[in-house]
Amino acid sequence: MSTQHWGDDYAHGAPPHVRHRRHRKWPWVLLAVVLLLAAGCAAIVVVLAGQSGKTVRVRYEVTGDAKGVSIAYSTWQDGAVVTQKEGPRDLPWRKELETTEFEKGGLLAVTTGKSGGTVSCSVTVDDRRPWTATASGREATATCSGF
């Protein structure tokens, strides 16, 4: 029969030295970071989804002395920005739309004809400060964009 020697501590009634496995913290930290990122992304999606259902009023206005101008402006249909065109036409010109699919990136561009003149465009989204631009000359373009 063999006996194991556990050292002097065991001889005095103390149990043999037991090594405890050290728990790694980095997997828990990584898990917490991933969960925070997922929660942040979910919050952004909820906020954006809430904005897409909101009705937005977009008012376009073109003034000036130019005759036979061409007008291109954005509308929002089925989640896409679509460009509508009108012209040649005389000024002033106004258009107002309401949409629930509004996304930034709209455009209003007005081009004078060969006879020239001056044109000014203005776009107002809801009651915010309007985007404006002016152009003068033959075949000059005033562009209001980024609204």
Rank of each mutant, 00 (worst) to 15 (best):
G68F: 03
V56K: 04
V47C: 04
I44H: 11
T55D: 07
R57T: 15
V81S: 08
Y60K: 05
L31N: 02
L48A: 15
T75I: 12
Y60G: 09
P27K: 03
R59E: 10
V33I: 12
Y60S: 08
R57F: 01
I71S: 06
G79R: 06
G64L: 02
K67R: 13
W76A: 06
W76R: 00
T63W: 00
G40F: 02
V45Q: 14
V45R: 12
D65H: 03
K54D: 14
V45H: 10
V56N: 08
W26Q: 15
L36I: 15
S74F: 00
A32K: 07
A72T: 13
A66E: 05
R59Q: 10
S70E: 01
G53K: 13
S74D: 07
V69F: 02
V56C: 02
K67D: 12
T75H: 01
G53W: 01
Q77W: 05
Y73S: 09
V58E: 05
V33R: 01
A42L: 10
A42R: 11
V62G: 00
T75Q: 05
D78T: 11
V81Q: 11
G53S: 14
D78F: 02
A39H: 04
Q77H: 09
R59W: 00
V46P: 02
A39M: 05
K54H: 12
R57E: 14
G79Y: 02
W28V: 07
V81Y: 00
E61S: 04
W26A: 13
A80M: 02
A72H: 05
L37C: 04
A38P: 10
L37R: 02
I44G: 11
T75D: 07
G53I: 13
V29H: 08
A49V: 13
T75V: 15
T55A: 13
G50E: 10
G40R: 06
V34E: 00
A43S: 08
L31K: 09
V45W: 03
V33D: 01
A39T: 08
K67C: 00
S70W: 01
K54A: 15
G40D: 05
A72S: 08
D78W: 03
S70T: 11
G79V: 07
C41R: 09
A38T: 08
A38M: 11
V29P: 00
Q77N: 12
V34T: 07
G50M: 09
Q51T: 14
A42T: 15
T75S: 04
W76T: 04
V33K: 06
V56M: 04
R57S: 14
A72V: 14
Y60A: 10
T63N: 04
D78L: 09
V34P: 01
C41L: 08
A72F: 00
W26D: 15
W26C: 01
E61L: 11
C41E: 04
D78I: 06
A66V: 00
A32T: 14
T55R: 13
Q51D: 10
T63E: 03
A49R: 06
T55Q: 15
V56Y: 06
V56L: 06
V81K: 11
D78V: 07
K54S: 12
L36Q: 04
I44T: 13
V58N: 02
L48V: 14
L36G: 05
K67S: 12
Q77I: 12
D78S: 14
A43N: 11
T55Y: 01
L31T: 13
Y73V: 13
S70M: 11
Y73C: 05
V29S: 06
D78Y: 03
